[in-house]
Amino acid sequence: MPSTESTFSNIQGLITDEQSFLLRIVQPGLVGLMDGSVSTLAPIFATAFATHNSHTAFLIGAAAAVGAGISMAFSEALSDDGKLTGRGSPILRGIVTGAMTFIGGFLHTLPFLIGNVHRALILAYFVVGIELLVISWIRYRFMKTSFAVSCLQVIVGGGLVFLSGILIGES
C-alpha cells in the first residue's frame, strides 16, 4: 500500500503552474477579499446609521478591517502547513489572505473620511457595488464560475450582511 507522502508526490507532479497559482495566491486572496468586503459591512453601516457620524464609522471600519485582516492571516497560515495539500507556504498564503481581507474591508471604509455622513454613505454604497463586481469577476476569471451566477451569489451574501447592518444600526 503506497504511503500518503508518495501518493501526494505523484499528485503534486500533476499540478500545473496555473493550478499552483490558484491554490497559493488566487484562492487565499479571493477568500480574504470576500471576507473583508462582506464581514465589515455590518459594523460600518450599523455605526453610520446609529451615530450619523462619519468619523466614528471610519474608526469602526478601520478597526474592523485591521482586525479581520489579522484574524484571517493567522487563520489561513495556521490552517494548513501546505505539505499535505500542496498549497505552498502557509506564511505566503497568510499574508495574501490577510492583506486582501484588509483591502476588502478598508476600501468601503474610506468614504467615511468625508465629513457628511449622507455623502459618505452614497459613496460607500458605490464602492461596495464595485467590490462585489470585482469579486464576481475574479471568481469568473480564475474559478471558472459563471459571471451571472457569481454576481447573484456574491450580491445576495453581501446584501444580507449589508441589510443586517442597516437594521441593527437603525434599531
Rank of each mutant, 00 (worst) to 15 (best):
L30T: 14
T101W: 05
V156S: 04
A50Y: 02
V149I: 14
S164T: 15
A148F: 11
A148D: 01
N10F: 06
A73K: 03
L167K: 11
P2K: 11
S20P: 05
H118L: 10
L110C: 05
M100F: 15
A64H: 02
G29Y: 06
L78Q: 04
G159T: 06
S75D: 00
S71Y: 04
S9L: 11
V161A: 13
A50M: 06
T7F: 09
I91H: 04
F58Y: 15
M34T: 15
Y140N: 12
R119G: 02
V161M: 15
S164M: 14
I91M: 14
Q27N: 13
F49L: 09
I168R: 04
Y125K: 06
Y140R: 11
I122G: 09
W137V: 11
I155M: 15
D17G: 15
G158V: 01
I130W: 06
F45I: 15
V38Y: 00
G165C: 09
V96A: 11
T97F: 03
L110G: 08
L107D: 05
S164E: 00
N10G: 12
S39M: 11
H108Q: 12
I70K: 02
S54V: 04
E76D: 12
G32P: 07
L33H: 09
S136A: 15
L133Q: 08
V31W: 05
A63L: 01
E5G: 01
I95K: 03
L14C: 04
V66D: 00
T97H: 03
P43V: 02
F112C: 09
V31Q: 13
A99M: 14
H55R: 13
L78D: 04
F49A: 10
Q153W: 07
S3I: 07
G69C: 03
I91Q: 08
A46H: 02
I95D: 05
G129E: 09
A57S: 07
S20W: 05
P111F: 00
S54I: 05
A57V: 03
G32H: 09
T4G: 08
A99I: 14
L92N: 05
L22I: 14
G104Q: 09
E5N: 09
F162G: 00
F8L: 11
E170D: 04
P28W: 03
M72E: 04
D17S: 14
R139F: 02
I135L: 12
